[in-house]
């Protein structure tokens, strides 16, 4: 098999890790946000501690923990891929939750009050008034995280996932060094596509100021 093809196969794994993590981490992040903003203090502190632990330790360590910790409790992790996804989803959900919280807290209280005096329910105020403004405000920060996620998928190799860097380093080990550099091109191409999509989204949201 030629090196380009083998790198492409590896990058397919990166893309899959990226897509699944993004799709699952956004809703999980929202749930964590609700927890960290809860009025019920114990829940709030549990969630805040959780976010602190996830953001305060290396993702690489979390990958090892996801793979090996279940074994300590008598249920060895059967799939390395599952372990990688669990670590990535939880890690990114924690970061997303802080972005969501910042976005929600940045909406002026007057927006809630205006909705309330117009007879909207709390749910309507959130979905019809606040949510869209939050999305507009957090898009740049989310874009940053999403770009970082593309590259962080390469960390999955530390628990033995054959993603693109693992494929490339196999060539390097046999004395062919160029695929290692070539792997960077896949990342550049993918992040270029994502950057274009994100800046399109930002432009679309810029139809109003504020």
């Amino acid at each position: 098999m030629n090196a380009w093809q083998s790198l492409l196969n590896g990058f397919g794994v990166n893309c899959m890790l990226f897509a699944v993590t993004l799709v699952l981490a956004v809703p999980l992040g929202l749930i964590i946000t609700l927890g960290t903003m809860a009025k019920f203090k114990p829940l709030k502190w549990v969630m805040k501690t959780f976010v602190w632990i996830i953001r305060g330790t290396p993702l690489m360590l979390q990958l090892f923990v996801a793979l090996y910790a279940p074994g300590l409790f008598g249920h060895p992790m059967s799939s390395r891929m599952t372990a990688a996804l669990i670590a990535l989803v939880i890690n990114y959900a924690a970061y997303f939750s802080e972005i969501f919280r910042g976005g929600i807290e940045s909406i002026p209280v007057g927006q809630y009050e205006a909705g309330q005096v117009l007879g909207l329910t709390k749910v309507q105020v959130f979905f019809k008034i606040v949510l869209f403004q939050v999305i507009k405000r957090i898009t740049p920060a989310m874009g940053n995280e999403i770009i970082t996620l593309v590259k962080d998928t390469a960390l999955a190799r530390v628990i033995g996932i054959t993603e693109i860097l693992m494929s490339a380093s196999r060539f390097a080990a046999s004395g062919v060094i160029w695929p290692l550099f070539a792997s960077g091109l896949y990342f550049l191409a993918f992040t270029a596509l994502l950057s274009a999509l994100l800046s399109y989204a930002e432009k679309r949201l810029n139809y109003y100021q504020g």
Binding site: P108, G110, Q111, E113, A114, Q116, V117, G119, I129, F132, Q133, K136, Y208, Q209, G210
Partner: peptide
Amino acid sequence: QLNFGMVFQQFNLFPQ
């Protein structure tokens, strides 16, 4: 609440 209409100092229009 719907007995009352309210006009705020800061307008509080919905920007979107």
